[in-house]
Computed example of a mutant assay.
Amino acid sequence: MPASDYVKNLRAKVGQDVIMFPTVSAIVLNDRGEVLLGQRSDNRQWSVIAGMMDPGEQPADALVREVLEETGVEVKIERVAGVALHQVVYPNGDHCHMVNTWFRCRAVGGEARVNDSESIAVGWFAPDALPEMSPFAMVRIRTSLEEDAPAWFARPGEGEIAGRQP
């Protein structure tokens, strides 16, 4: 996945030190209650559809754009499902803190397919038959599946959420 010009310009100034980025994730459900997932091209892991916001972009706009760009699926946002910080170190050594806001969405159009170079596969999965995924991906899915649950967030002092059950 090529870095945007914005990220390249930041990296030219700070090197591999930590940069904090706003990001969004979509937990997209279809009419059968299946979850839309993508298998990432960089690490071959299955995950929810996610991406970085562009400067000046609203989170909801970024989310709709990312899902359509990566999967060809059009979505309607139903609610904010959670927000949390997670740390990422890329294979090249770049350090990031991603402030991720995830949304529960409903598929309203399009057809799930690999639609860009960020994924090698895209598919719908029943919640009880998900492929192996990171603990953070599982947190985002679990907190989104309840119909009218309040938005989830790490409580003050909880620190890293990976691997922890909300």
Results as ranks from 00 to 15, higher is better:
Ala129Leu: 00
Gly123Val: 10
Arg79His: 11
Ile19Lys: 07
Pro127Gly: 04
His97Val: 13
Asn92Cys: 02
Phe153His: 15
Asn115His: 08
Trp102Asn: 07
Met1Phe: 12
Met98Gly: 01
Ala62Asp: 02
Asp128Leu: 02
Arg140Thr: 09
Leu10Cys: 15
Val35Tyr: 02
Val83Leu: 04
Pro156Val: 04
Asn100Lys: 06
Gln58Arg: 06
Met98Pro: 00
Glu34Pro: 09
Arg44Glu: 13
Asp17Tyr: 08
Val80Ile: 13
Phe153Glu: 14
Met52Lys: 12
Ile120Asn: 06
Glu111Val: 15
Glu66Gly: 08
Ala107Glu: 06
Asn92Gln: 11
Gln87Val: 12
Glu66Asp: 13
Ser4Val: 03
Trp102Ala: 01
Trp46Val: 07
Ala151Tyr: 05
Ser4Tyr: 04
Ala126Gln: 06
Ala81Arg: 05
Ala3Arg: 11
Lys8Val: 14
Val73Ala: 08
Leu36Ala: 10
Ala50Ser: 13
Ala81Val: 02
Ile141Ala: 03
Phe136Ser: 13
Pro166Leu: 07
Gln45Glu: 15
Val139Gln: 11
Asp17Pro: 00
Trp46Glu: 09
Pro135His: 06
Ile27Phe: 05
Val24Met: 00
Arg155Asp: 06
Arg142Glu: 13
Leu145Asp: 06
Ile49Val: 15
Asp31Gln: 08
Asn100Arg: 07
Arg65Val: 00
Arg140Val: 04
Phe125Arg: 00
His95Gln: 11
Glu74Phe: 05
Leu37Lys: 06
Arg11Val: 08
Asp94Ser: 10
Tyr6His: 15
Ser134Lys: 03
Asp128Ser: 10
Gly56Glu: 00
Thr23Arg: 07
Leu37Met: 10
Val114Gly: 04
Lys76Asp: 08
Val122Ser: 04
Asp5Arg: 14
Gly163Tyr: 06
Val14Phe: 11
Glu146Gly: 06
His86Tyr: 11
Arg142Ile: 03
His97Lys: 03
Ile27His: 06
Gln87His: 15
Met1Val: 14
Thr71Cys: 12
Arg11Ser: 07
Glu74Pro: 00
Lys13Pro: 01
Asp148Asn: 13
Asp94Trp: 09
Pro131Val: 13
Gly33Cys: 08
Arg40Leu: 12
Glu160Trp: 03
Met1Ala: 15
Arg32Met: 05
Tyr6Thr: 14
Gln39Arg: 15
Gly15Ser: 11
Arg40Gly: 10
Leu37Asp: 02
Glu146Ile: 09
Ala137Leu: 09
Asp31Ala: 13
Glu158Gly: 12
Pro59Leu: 04
Asp42Gln: 10
Asn43Arg: 05
Ile120Pro: 01
Lys8Phe: 01
Ala60Thr: 15
Val139Asn: 14
Asp128Val: 03
Ser119Val: 02
Gly159Thr: 08
Trp124Ala: 03
Ala3Val: 04
Glu69Asn: 09
Val48Pro: 04
Gly82Lys: 05
Asp17Thr: 14
Cys105Gly: 02
Glu78Gln: 14
Val139Gly: 04
Thr101Ala: 07
Val35Gln: 00
Phe153Ala: 11
Met98Ile: 11
